[in-house]
Design a protein around this nucleic acid. Structure first.
Length: 595
RNA sequence: GGCGCUGUAGCGAAGUCGGUUAUCGCGCCGGCCUGUCACGCCGGAGAUCGUGGGUUCAAGUCCCAUCAGCGUCGCCA
């Protein structure tokens, strides 16, 4: 038996076809499994490209055959042999017409039995998968996910390069600002008691790059936010970050539509029609109860406040009197899918979003039943049905609350949850839209002041500039979000480049001049030396990959993700550090308070 | 911080009203097998029922606490 030394592989396992038959090849990879049939052995060899069958028989050199008999799953091996047409073919395998008839075999590395099998359809629990992430990542599905992510990043860089964007790196050690999400802090050894913050986004740096004259910037970069996790939220995530000078909303949006059209065509072979529809924030909320509406299905919201404001039913009249609203969605033709019990469940569901309850009317097989029959006049009930365009087979779901935000959240999420339950969400159907004219501010009850919906550098709409001072609640921003199938893929805005407007913005946010100077002085100063009008956008690359790869969670498109408590199960970080390290940093911890 | 779901052999699951030796599939180990490809057949090993406490004659099953994972609300400029 020869030693296969030196060894050089001829190609990836999954790359060989019938036209390669007759070649002598060298291949390597992981043993998927071995099938031993007495005097015949078949071994599936796997690498990132797929599987190639190795075969051994009684004409195989005895030592090679015996070694083949010792192979176990996940052994790393190298083999040399003749690629030949199979006697019996496997149509399920791209390499299914050929096999490598092995003449030399070497075990490069033995393997213990892994804690779970390396198969797409063997689903270990998440915790185990993540503890052994390097094994989980061997699964073909995970290999595909990360390959998809690579190609998305590649197409992105190519496209923006062609459009004249420079990729420029910005710092990971940056200045902490109390606005926005919680920062991850990094203590400074050289400046005891002082901290860097990991960037929540390169926002300020990219604006400074515009002031520096780079004109078009892009970066695929990591961002950090110390907030609780979700299926679509990790504490560190990747943005495709963009900024352009001398461009308005329409130009920026056109470039993005070109990008997304190309990305989906090249990566998925899907033609997405452009331009994408645009909805103002007001319209998105009114029609879908969401600033990131899913356009793959109907069930639009409908305001019935005017119909019930004077009715005798407190549940409807009170919210209107208190400045809120009563709205409904009509699950057209789906009454049969929601028997009474299922409606009760929907009632529980809306309570998650702080709605007090769910009123309903069910029109099923000629019968009309509703939760508020006794409380409204026949005319009032008819008016509601008419407004809802109700017909037999429909289910009307109604939420009222003194806060519009609660009504929107409850019905917006209910709309989506029902569509999901009814299997109306086609993962292959990609519906993009832009949401524009976001409000500049939202009132922060806790802080007792307005805070920026987007960030403090977002420009107000020209006709709303005065409202910065006079009517912040109704001041609209030159901001735009790109939304795909109910997911906020990204967002951006035209930035303030006028120092006076920036000053008014800080004042609206309740900053004194001194506070603004201390936190954002570098940016304020920079604007004094010639600032081009500019704007930009940032995509969440993880979410984009998730949607394009058909993943359920962004964890599936991140090689080494964190779990819900922000730990990483493979390395067990975060972890305590040596007292010496803390000492060098001038840090001390007091014991956690009891209770 | 709140709410919900999950935790039983290496993996995935079943386990009824609390009652004898905890069940099944995959994997693993041994044997047989010349065209398999989720190979097949025969045999075998493998369990701190997440952890701790409690109730009970008796706990995988009931109660309390706790740990871990998932989803979600708050939070995420």
């Amino acid at each position: 038996m020869k030693t296969l030394e030196p060894f050089r592989r001829s190609g990836y396992c999954g790359s060989f076809r019938l036209e390669d038959a007759g070649k002598t090849l060298q291949v390597c990879g992981w043993v998927q499994r071995s099938r031993k049939l007495g005097a015949l052995i078949f071994t599936d060899l796997r690498d990132r490209s797929g599987i190639l069958q190795l075969s051994f028989d009684d004409a195989t050199e005895r030592a090679v055959f015996q070694l083949a008999g010792t192979l176990h799953p996940e052994y790393v091996i190298a083999a040399r042999g003749l690629l030949r047409e199979r006697e019996s073919k496997n149509p399920d395998l791209p390499t299914g017409e050929v096999e490598l008839y092995v003449s030399e075999l070497r075990i490069l590395s033995a393997a213990e039995t892994p804690p779970f099998e390396i198969l797409d359809d063997v689903q270990a629990h998440d915790a185990l998968r993540l503890q052994y992430r390097y094994l989980d990542l061997r699964r073909p599905a995970m290999q595909r996910m990360l390959a998809t992510r690579h190609r998305i990043a590649k197409i992105t860089r190519d496209y923006f390069d062609e459009q004249g964007f420079y990729e420029i790196e910005t710092p990971m050690l940056t200045k902490s600002t109390p606005e926005g999400a919680r920062d991850y802090l990094v203590p400074s050894r050289v400046h005891p008691g002082s901290f860097y913050a990991l960037p929540q986004s390169p926002q300020q740096y990219k604006q400074l790059l515009m002031l520096a004259g780079f004109d078009r910037y892009m970066q695929i970069t990591r961002c950090f936010r110390d907030e609780d996790l979700r299926a679509d939220r990790q504490p560190e995530f990747t943005q495709i970050d963009l900024e352009l000078s001398f461009a308005d909303e329409d130009e920026i949006i056109a470039i993005q539509e070109g990008y997304l059209r190309r990305l989906f065509a090249e990566q998925l072979g899907v033609e997405v029609p452009t331009p994408f529809p645009r909805l103002t924030w007001q319209e998105a909320m009114a029609r879908f109860g969401s600033d990131k509406p899913d356009l793959r299905f109907g069930f639009e919201l409908c305001d019935i406040s005017d119909l019930v404001k004077d009715c005798g039913f407190q549940v409807f009249s009170a919210p209107v009197a208190e400045g809120g609203s009563v709205r409904l969605i009509n699950l057209k033709g789906h009454a049969a899918d929601f028997p009474r019990k299922a409606i009760d469940k929907l009632g529980e569901f809306v309570k998650t979003y702080r709605a007090k309850g769910l009123a309903w009317t069910r029109l099923h097989e000629g019968k009309v039943t509703s939760s508020y029959q006794k409380f409204l006049t026949e005319a009032e009930q008819q008016a509601i049905l008419q407004r809802a365009d109700a017909a037999d087979g429909d289910l009307i779901l109604i939420v009222g609350d003194a806060r519009d935000s609660v009504v929107f959240a409850a019905l917006g999420e209910l709309r989506r949850a029902c569509a999901k339950q009814l299997s109306l969400l086609d993962a292959e159907d990609f519906r993009f839209l832009w949401v524009t004219e976001f409000p500049m501010f939202e009132y922060d009850e806790e802080e007792g002041r307005y805070s920026a919906v987007h960030h403090p550098f977002t420009a107000p709409m020209a006709e709303d500039v005065e409202k910065l001072r006079l009517d912040p609640a109704n001041c609209r921003a030159r901001a735009y979000d790109i939304v795909l199938n109910g997911v906020e893929l990204g967002g951006g805005s035209i930035r303030i480049h006028d120092p006076g407007v920036q000053q008014a913005m800080f004042e609206a946010l309740g900053f004194t001049k001194e506070q603004a100077e201390a936190q954002f002085g570098h940016l304020i100063n920079a604007f004094r030396y010639g600032a081009p009008p500019h704007g930009g956008l940032a995509y969440g690359l993880d979410r984009l990959c998730m949607l394009m790869a058909g993943a359920e969670s962004i964890r599936d498109v991140i090689a080494f993700p964190k779990v819900q408590n922000a730990a990483e199960l493979m390395t067990n970080c975060p972890s305590p550090v040596e007292a010496k390290q803390l000492e060098e940093l001038g840090l001390a911890f007091r014991p956690q308070a009891e209770g």
